[in-house]
Protein backbone atom coordinates (compact mmCIF):
# COMPACT_ATOMS: atom_id res chain seq x y z
CA UNK A 1 0.00 0.00 0.00
CA UNK A 2 1.24 3.48 -0.71
CA UNK A 3 -0.08 6.71 0.71
CA UNK A 4 0.70 9.97 -1.00
CA UNK A 5 0.61 13.18 0.99
CA UNK A 6 -0.88 15.31 -1.75
CA UNK A 7 -3.39 14.16 -4.28
CA UNK A 8 -2.15 14.62 -7.78
CA UNK A 9 -3.89 14.40 -11.13
CA UNK A 10 -3.71 11.09 -12.87
CA UNK A 11 -1.28 11.45 -15.73
CA UNK A 12 -3.19 8.93 -17.84
CA UNK A 13 -2.56 8.84 -21.53
CA UNK A 14 -5.06 10.42 -23.87
CA UNK A 15 -6.44 7.54 -25.90
CA UNK A 16 -9.59 6.75 -27.83
CA UNK A 17 -12.53 9.07 -28.30
CA UNK A 18 -13.11 11.97 -25.91
CA UNK A 19 -15.81 14.59 -25.79
CA UNK A 20 -15.81 18.34 -25.22
CA UNK A 21 -16.49 19.40 -21.64
CA UNK A 22 -19.54 21.68 -21.57
CA UNK A 23 -21.05 23.29 -18.47
CA UNK A 24 -24.49 21.75 -19.05
CA UNK A 25 -22.94 18.32 -18.38
CA UNK A 26 -20.96 19.17 -15.20
CA UNK A 27 -23.50 17.78 -12.74
CA UNK A 28 -24.07 14.60 -14.65
CA UNK A 29 -20.33 13.93 -15.02
CA UNK A 30 -19.56 14.62 -11.36
CA UNK A 31 -22.50 12.55 -10.16
CA UNK A 32 -22.35 9.57 -12.51
CA UNK A 33 -18.68 9.53 -13.55
CA UNK A 34 -19.48 8.16 -17.02
CA UNK A 35 -16.92 6.03 -18.82
CA UNK A 36 -15.34 8.70 -21.01
CA UNK A 37 -11.60 8.34 -21.67
CA UNK A 38 -10.84 12.09 -21.65
CA UNK A 39 -12.29 15.55 -22.06
CA UNK A 40 -11.29 18.47 -24.21
CA UNK A 41 -11.65 21.71 -22.26
CA UNK A 42 -12.06 25.13 -23.90
CA UNK A 43 -9.23 26.96 -22.18
CA UNK A 44 -10.69 30.44 -22.82
CA UNK A 45 -13.75 29.59 -20.70
CA UNK A 46 -11.54 29.14 -17.64
CA UNK A 47 -9.41 32.27 -18.00
CA UNK A 48 -11.47 33.79 -15.22
CA UNK A 49 -10.72 35.23 -11.82
CA UNK A 50 -12.61 32.65 -9.80
CA UNK A 51 -15.98 31.12 -9.15
CA UNK A 52 -17.73 27.79 -9.56
CA UNK A 53 -16.52 27.02 -13.10
CA UNK A 54 -12.96 26.49 -11.90
CA UNK A 55 -14.21 24.31 -9.06
CA UNK A 56 -16.20 22.14 -11.47
CA UNK A 57 -13.19 21.78 -13.72
CA UNK A 58 -11.00 20.83 -10.81
CA UNK A 59 -13.44 18.22 -9.63
CA UNK A 60 -13.77 16.71 -13.11
CA UNK A 61 -10.02 16.87 -13.65
CA UNK A 62 -9.56 14.75 -10.55
CA UNK A 63 -11.33 11.90 -12.35
CA UNK A 64 -10.42 12.39 -16.00
CA UNK A 65 -7.43 13.33 -18.12
CA UNK A 66 -7.93 16.48 -20.20
CA UNK A 67 -6.51 18.33 -23.17
CA UNK A 68 -6.94 22.09 -23.55
CA UNK A 69 -8.26 23.69 -26.70
CA UNK A 70 -8.37 27.44 -27.25
CA UNK A 71 -9.96 29.91 -29.64
CA UNK A 72 -8.33 33.17 -28.60
CA UNK A 73 -4.60 32.80 -29.25
CA UNK A 74 -4.86 34.42 -32.67
CA UNK A 75 -1.52 33.07 -33.90
CA UNK A 76 -2.19 34.44 -37.37
CA UNK A 77 -2.90 38.01 -36.29
CA UNK A 78 -0.39 40.80 -36.89
CA UNK A 79 -1.38 42.38 -33.57
CA UNK A 80 1.14 41.80 -30.79
CA UNK A 81 0.80 38.40 -29.13
CA UNK A 82 -1.55 38.81 -26.19
CA UNK A 83 0.81 38.07 -23.32
CA UNK A 84 -1.96 38.37 -20.74
CA UNK A 85 -3.80 35.59 -22.57
CA UNK A 86 -0.69 33.44 -22.74
CA UNK A 87 0.04 34.03 -19.06
CA UNK A 88 -3.44 32.84 -18.18
CA UNK A 89 -3.04 29.83 -20.43
CA UNK A 90 0.20 28.96 -18.71
CA UNK A 91 -1.45 29.24 -15.30
CA UNK A 92 -4.22 26.92 -16.45
CA UNK A 93 -1.63 24.48 -17.73
CA UNK A 94 0.16 24.49 -14.39
CA UNK A 95 -3.03 24.09 -12.41
CA UNK A 96 -4.84 21.48 -14.50
CA UNK A 97 -2.00 19.65 -16.26
CA UNK A 98 -3.60 19.03 -19.67
CA UNK A 99 -1.91 16.39 -21.81
CA UNK A 100 -1.51 19.06 -24.49
CA UNK A 101 -2.74 22.48 -25.59
CA UNK A 102 -4.16 23.35 -28.97
CA UNK A 103 -5.50 26.35 -30.88
CA UNK A 104 -6.28 27.20 -34.50
CA UNK A 105 -4.27 28.12 -37.55
CA UNK A 106 -6.11 31.39 -38.11
CA UNK A 107 -6.49 34.94 -36.85
CA UNK A 108 -9.31 36.04 -34.59
CA UNK A 109 -8.24 39.62 -33.94
CA UNK A 110 -6.98 42.66 -35.80
CA UNK A 111 -6.33 46.22 -34.74
CA UNK A 112 -6.94 45.09 -31.12
CA UNK A 113 -10.46 44.06 -32.00
CA UNK A 114 -11.54 40.46 -31.39
CA UNK A 115 -13.89 38.92 -33.94
CA UNK A 116 -14.25 35.61 -32.09
CA UNK A 117 -14.33 33.82 -35.41
CA UNK A 118 -11.67 31.65 -36.98
CA UNK A 119 -10.53 33.73 -39.95
CA UNK A 120 -8.33 31.99 -42.51
CA UNK A 121 -4.89 33.20 -43.49
CA UNK A 122 -3.64 33.66 -47.03
CA UNK A 123 -1.57 30.60 -47.92
CA UNK A 124 1.69 32.46 -48.48
CA UNK A 125 5.28 32.21 -47.33
CA UNK A 126 4.76 35.48 -45.45
CA UNK A 127 1.96 33.86 -43.42
CA UNK A 128 4.08 30.77 -42.74
CA UNK A 129 7.00 32.87 -41.47
CA UNK A 130 4.71 35.04 -39.37
CA UNK A 131 2.83 32.17 -37.75
CA UNK A 132 5.99 30.10 -37.21
CA UNK A 133 7.64 32.95 -35.31
CA UNK A 134 4.60 33.45 -33.10
CA UNK A 135 4.06 29.76 -32.43
CA UNK A 136 7.68 29.45 -31.35
CA UNK A 137 7.16 32.28 -28.88
CA UNK A 138 3.99 30.64 -27.61
CA UNK A 139 5.79 27.33 -27.22
CA UNK A 140 8.55 29.08 -25.27
CA UNK A 141 6.03 30.61 -22.90
CA UNK A 142 4.15 27.33 -22.44
CA UNK A 143 7.25 25.18 -22.38
CA UNK A 144 5.76 22.64 -24.74
CA UNK A 145 4.82 21.97 -28.34
CA UNK A 146 1.26 23.02 -29.18
CA UNK A 147 -1.16 21.61 -31.74
CA UNK A 148 -2.61 23.83 -34.46
CA UNK A 149 -5.97 22.99 -35.99
CA UNK A 150 -7.06 23.50 -39.59
CA UNK A 151 -10.15 25.72 -39.73
CA UNK A 152 -13.14 25.45 -42.04
CA UNK A 153 -12.88 27.92 -44.84
CA UNK A 154 -15.35 29.99 -46.84
CA UNK A 155 -13.12 32.32 -48.83
CA UNK A 156 -10.07 32.16 -51.09
CA UNK A 157 -7.39 34.82 -51.05
CA UNK A 158 -6.09 36.02 -54.41
CA UNK A 159 -2.63 36.06 -52.82
CA UNK A 160 -2.59 32.30 -52.16
CA UNK A 161 0.66 30.71 -53.24
CA UNK A 162 -0.14 27.12 -52.28
CA UNK A 163 -2.94 24.77 -51.28
CA UNK A 164 -4.36 24.64 -47.76
CA UNK A 165 -2.75 21.27 -47.04
CA UNK A 166 0.65 22.53 -48.15
CA UNK A 167 0.17 25.58 -45.99
CA UNK A 168 -0.77 23.56 -42.90
CA UNK A 169 2.13 21.14 -43.37
CA UNK A 170 4.62 23.96 -43.98
CA UNK A 171 3.48 25.88 -40.90
CA UNK A 172 3.79 22.78 -38.70
CA UNK A 173 7.27 22.16 -40.05
CA UNK A 174 8.46 25.78 -39.78
CA UNK A 175 6.99 26.28 -36.30
CA UNK A 176 7.89 22.77 -35.14
CA UNK A 177 4.41 22.30 -33.77
CA UNK A 178 1.90 19.47 -34.08
CA UNK A 179 -1.38 19.28 -35.92
CA UNK A 180 -4.93 18.83 -34.69
CA UNK A 181 -6.64 17.62 -37.82
CA UNK A 182 -10.31 18.49 -37.92
CA UNK A 183 -11.79 15.99 -40.35
CA UNK A 184 -15.08 17.86 -40.58
CA UNK A 185 -13.26 21.10 -41.39
CA UNK A 186 -11.32 19.37 -44.15
CA UNK A 187 -14.57 18.11 -45.61
CA UNK A 188 -16.39 21.45 -45.27
CA UNK A 189 -13.54 23.36 -46.91
CA UNK A 190 -13.20 20.76 -49.66
CA UNK A 191 -16.89 21.09 -50.47
CA UNK A 192 -16.82 24.88 -50.39
CA UNK A 193 -13.69 25.15 -52.50
CA UNK A 194 -14.11 22.04 -54.63
CA UNK A 195 -10.95 20.14 -53.81
CA UNK A 196 -10.37 16.49 -53.01
CA UNK A 197 -10.43 15.96 -49.21
CA UNK A 198 -8.63 12.61 -49.52
CA UNK A 199 -5.80 14.30 -51.37
CA UNK A 200 -5.65 16.84 -48.51
CA UNK A 201 -5.23 14.09 -45.90
CA UNK A 202 -2.70 12.26 -48.06
CA UNK A 203 -0.43 15.30 -48.10
CA UNK A 204 -0.33 15.92 -44.32
CA UNK A 205 2.79 14.57 -42.57
CA UNK A 206 1.82 11.60 -40.39
CA UNK A 207 4.27 12.33 -37.59
CA UNK A 208 2.75 15.76 -36.81
CA UNK A 209 -0.88 14.74 -36.37
CA UNK A 210 -1.72 14.14 -32.68
CA UNK A 211 -5.47 14.61 -32.49
CA UNK A 212 -8.59 14.49 -34.68
CA UNK A 213 -11.77 16.51 -34.38
CA UNK A 214 -15.12 15.27 -35.61
CA UNK A 215 -18.17 17.50 -35.78
CA UNK A 216 -21.38 18.05 -37.70
CA UNK A 217 -21.88 20.62 -40.44
CA UNK A 218 -25.01 22.29 -41.74
CA UNK A 219 -25.83 22.03 -45.43
CA UNK A 220 -26.68 25.56 -46.54
CA UNK A 221 -27.25 24.54 -50.14
CA UNK A 222 -24.54 26.56 -51.81
CA UNK A 223 -22.01 25.72 -49.12
CA UNK A 224 -21.46 23.70 -45.97
CA UNK A 225 -21.22 25.49 -42.65
CA UNK A 226 -19.19 24.18 -39.73
CA UNK A 227 -21.91 24.60 -37.11
CA UNK A 228 -20.88 22.09 -34.40
CA UNK A 229 -24.60 21.60 -33.83
CA UNK A 230 -25.30 18.31 -35.55
CA UNK A 231 -24.28 14.68 -35.70
CA UNK A 232 -21.21 13.83 -37.75
CA UNK A 233 -22.35 13.44 -41.37
CA UNK A 234 -21.76 10.28 -43.50
CA UNK A 235 -19.09 11.77 -45.83
CA UNK A 236 -17.13 12.91 -42.76
CA UNK A 237 -17.29 9.39 -41.30
CA UNK A 238 -15.89 8.08 -44.60
CA UNK A 239 -13.09 10.59 -44.52
CA UNK A 240 -12.41 9.73 -40.88
CA UNK A 241 -12.06 6.03 -41.72
CA UNK A 242 -9.52 7.00 -44.32
CA UNK A 243 -7.72 9.26 -41.83
CA UNK A 244 -7.49 6.45 -39.27
CA UNK A 245 -5.91 4.14 -41.84
CA UNK A 246 -3.40 6.80 -42.76
CA UNK A 247 -2.56 8.34 -39.38
CA UNK A 248 -3.45 5.49 -37.02
CA UNK A 249 -5.66 5.41 -33.94
CA UNK A 250 -5.14 9.04 -33.07
CA UNK A 251 -7.15 10.43 -30.09
CA UNK A 252 -10.39 11.78 -31.49
CA UNK A 253 -12.80 14.34 -30.14
CA UNK A 254 -16.51 14.72 -30.84
CA UNK A 255 -17.10 18.49 -30.97
CA UNK A 256 -20.56 19.83 -30.23
CA UNK A 257 -21.07 23.47 -29.23
CA UNK A 258 -24.60 24.47 -30.16
CA UNK A 259 -27.86 22.69 -29.37
CA UNK A 260 -25.75 20.43 -27.17
CA UNK A 261 -27.41 17.02 -26.70
CA UNK A 262 -27.47 14.87 -23.58
CA UNK A 263 -24.28 13.19 -22.45
CA UNK A 264 -25.63 9.81 -23.51
CA UNK A 265 -26.33 11.04 -27.07
CA UNK A 266 -22.79 12.39 -27.22
CA UNK A 267 -21.48 9.04 -26.03
CA UNK A 268 -23.42 7.26 -28.78
CA UNK A 269 -21.63 9.47 -31.30
CA UNK A 270 -18.31 8.82 -29.57
CA UNK A 271 -18.93 5.06 -29.69
CA UNK A 272 -19.35 5.26 -33.46
CA UNK A 273 -15.91 6.81 -33.69
CA UNK A 274 -14.49 4.26 -31.24
CA UNK A 275 -15.64 1.44 -33.50
CA UNK A 276 -13.67 2.95 -36.37
CA UNK A 277 -10.59 3.81 -34.37
CA UNK A 278 -10.29 0.37 -32.76
CA UNK A 279 -11.34 -1.65 -35.83
Amino acid sequence: MSISGKSSFKKSKIQGVGIGLRSCHYQSIIQHKPRIPWFEVISDNYMIEGGPELNYLESIRNDYPIVMHGVGMSVGSVDDLNMDYLGKLRSLKERFEPAWISDHLCWVSADKRYFHDLLPLPYTQESIDHVAKRVQRVQNVLGERILLENVSNYMTYKANEMTEWEFLSNVAEAADCNILLDINNVYVSSYNHKFDPFLYLNEIPVNRVKQFHLAGYQDKGLYLFDSHSEKVKPPVWDLYEFAVTKFGSIPTLIEWDDDIPSLSDLLTEANKASKIIWK
Partner: peptide, 10 residues
Amino acid sequence: MLKEIQQVFA
Protein backbone atom coordinates in the same frame (compact mmCIF):
# COMPACT_ATOMS: atom_id res chain seq x y z
CA MET B 1 0.31 42.04 -47.18
CA LEU B 2 -0.89 40.20 -44.07
CA LYS B 3 -1.01 43.41 -42.07
CA GLU B 4 -2.86 45.21 -44.83
CA ILE B 5 -5.43 42.44 -45.22
CA GLN B 6 -6.22 42.32 -41.51
CA GLN B 7 -6.36 46.09 -41.14
CA VAL B 8 -8.78 46.39 -44.05
CA PHE B 9 -10.97 43.65 -42.59
CA ALA B 10 -11.11 45.51 -39.26
